[in-house]
Simulated scan of single mutants.
Amino acid sequence: MHVWGDDRELHLSGTLDVHSAADVRARVHTAVDRGTGDFVLDVSRVDTLDATGLGLLVAIHRRAGRRERRFVLRGATPAVHRILVITRLHRILVLQGAVAA
């Protein structure tokens, strides 16, 4: 998993799973805690995510809310979007620019 960006927007590339979640979590917490306004997580280059990755997205949503920031998930691939719909997280998370199948 590769992570880059700043306190307003982070980009992910690779697989968001049990093996990569801890590193991503650390970067996200720092960005969310330091920044202001919307926090955007661009997942347009994320291939897949597992239950740990889904849990991390929910945790980011909660953390951003506690910091009075809105969490925006940008560019969900069809595979990621399908998982969000199956788990009904698409109803909770703010999705932007989902990639069409």
Rank of each mutant, 00 (worst) to 15 (best):
D38T: 09
D23Y: 10
D38M: 04
L49M: 14
A26P: 06
I92V: 15
Q96D: 15
V43E: 00
R74H: 08
L10Y: 10
R62M: 03
V18G: 11
V72W: 01
I92E: 13
S20R: 11
R34E: 09
R34I: 07
V3S: 14
G5M: 09
V24H: 02
G55R: 04
H2R: 13
D7A: 15
G97S: 14
H61N: 06
I83L: 11
D50T: 00
R70I: 08
I60C: 05
R63Y: 05
G65S: 14
D47S: 09
L93D: 03
L89N: 05
V72K: 02
I92H: 13
A98Y: 01
G53T: 00
A59K: 05
V43H: 06
G37K: 08
V99L: 13
A64E: 00
H90A: 11
L57H: 03
V24E: 00
D6Y: 07
A26S: 13
L73N: 03
A98C: 12
V99Q: 14
S13T: 09
R63A: 07
V58S: 03
V58F: 02
G37A: 05
V99D: 05
A101T: 14
T77E: 07
D38P: 15
V58M: 04
G65D: 11
A59D: 08
D23C: 07
F71N: 02
L89H: 05
D38K: 10
L56P: 00
R63W: 02
R91G: 12
L16Y: 00
T36G: 11
V40T: 15
T87V: 06
E9I: 14
D38F: 03
A79H: 13
V72E: 08
V28C: 15
R66S: 10
D47C: 04
G55D: 02
I83H: 00
D6I: 07
A21H: 04
R8D: 08
A79P: 05
D23A: 13
A98G: 07
L57K: 03
L12N: 03
H19T: 15
R27A: 15
G14H: 05
A79I: 09
L56A: 06
L12W: 01
V32P: 02
V18W: 11
D17H: 09
E9C: 14
R74F: 10
R25A: 15
G65A: 14
A101R: 12
F39Y: 02
H11Q: 11
F71G: 05
S20P: 04
E9A: 12
V28M: 09
D50S: 05
L95Y: 06
A76T: 12
M1R: 08
V80P: 01
T87M: 08
I60S: 01
L54R: 00
V72C: 04
L57N: 01
R25E: 14
L49S: 07
H2G: 06
V85N: 07
T77Q: 15
V80C: 03
A64W: 00
G97Q: 15
D33I: 01
R70Q: 12
E68L: 10
G14Y: 03
L56F: 06
V18M: 12
L49Q: 03
H19V: 10
D33N: 11
H11V: 10
Q96T: 14
G65K: 10
L49R: 01
T77N: 13
D38R: 12
H61M: 03
